[in-house]
Amino acid sequence: MINPVKMIGNIKSVTHMGESSVRTVILAGLGAYSTGIEQFGMAQHLVTKRLNGLVERGEAVEAETLRRVDDTKSVIMDRAGHQFNYALNKTCGIDRERLSNFETKIDQLQKAIDELAKKEK
């Protein structure tokens, strides 16, 4: 014959073990979730830190590249000016400075002619 008191005690014991196991599983899940959130935060911080470092390096490279472009541009413009002066001198016998002085004299002559024309009116 089955003893009802013993049966109830066994049921309580099994129920208590089940509740304990469920609680353990839930707590383990919550712990895993918490650890995951922590690790995600640390990873996010690390990624942000590394990204900021890359941005700083990129800014330095950009500044250096722009400086080199400006230097190269100056050298090219200087060489082009020398080549232009050389070609102008060889073809016309005039250098750029003399040509610039000539343009200034023409502008002064035009101004004098305009003033004379105004006086005659």
Rank of each mutant, 00 (worst) to 15 (best):
Glu19Thr: 11
Gln110Lys: 15
Lys105Ser: 08
Thr65Glu: 00
Gly93His: 01
Ser21Lys: 12
Ser100Gln: 11
Ser74Ala: 15
Arg79Asn: 08
Arg68Tyr: 05
Thr91Gln: 04
Val61Ala: 07
Cys92Gly: 04
Ser21Ile: 06
Asp114Gly: 02
Thr91Phe: 01
Tyr86Phe: 10
Leu99Thr: 06
Ser74Cys: 02
Ile94Arg: 00
Leu109His: 09
Gly93Pro: 00
Val55Ser: 02
Glu97Trp: 06
Arg67Val: 02
Asp107Gly: 03
Tyr86Arg: 11
Ile8Arg: 11
Gly58Phe: 00
Phe40Lys: 12
Asp71Cys: 01
Val25Ala: 14
Ala112Thr: 10
Leu54Phe: 12
Asn10Ala: 07
Ala43Leu: 10
Gly41Asp: 04
Leu46Phe: 06
Asp71Ile: 02
Met42Pro: 00
Lys111Tyr: 03
Phe102Ile: 12
Glu19Ala: 07
Gln108Met: 05
Met77Asn: 08
His82Gly: 12
Glu64Ile: 03
Gly41Lys: 04
Leu109Val: 13
Glu62Lys: 13
Met42Tyr: 10
Leu109Ile: 12
Glu38Trp: 06
Arg98Pro: 00
Glu62His: 07
Leu109Glu: 12
Asp95Ser: 05
Leu116His: 05
Gln108Lys: 10
Ile113Cys: 01
Arg98Thr: 14
Glu97Pro: 01
Lys49Leu: 11
Gln108Asn: 07
Val14Met: 05
Gly31Asp: 13
Glu38Phe: 07
Thr65Leu: 05
Val69Met: 03
Val25Asn: 05
Glu115Cys: 02
Gln108Ser: 05
Phe102His: 10
Thr15Leu: 04
Phe84Arg: 06
Gly81Leu: 01
Leu116Arg: 12
His45Ser: 13
Arg57Ser: 12
Glu115Arg: 12
Cys92Phe: 12
Asn89Gly: 03
Glu62Ile: 09
Thr35Tyr: 04
Phe40Leu: 13
Asp95Arg: 03
Cys92Ser: 14
Ala117Met: 09
Gly41Arg: 02
Met42Ser: 15
Tyr33Ala: 15
Ala60Asp: 10
Gln44His: 07
Asp95Met: 04
Phe84Gly: 01
Ile8Trp: 07
Leu99Phe: 15
Met77Ile: 08
Leu66Glu: 13
Met77Glu: 14
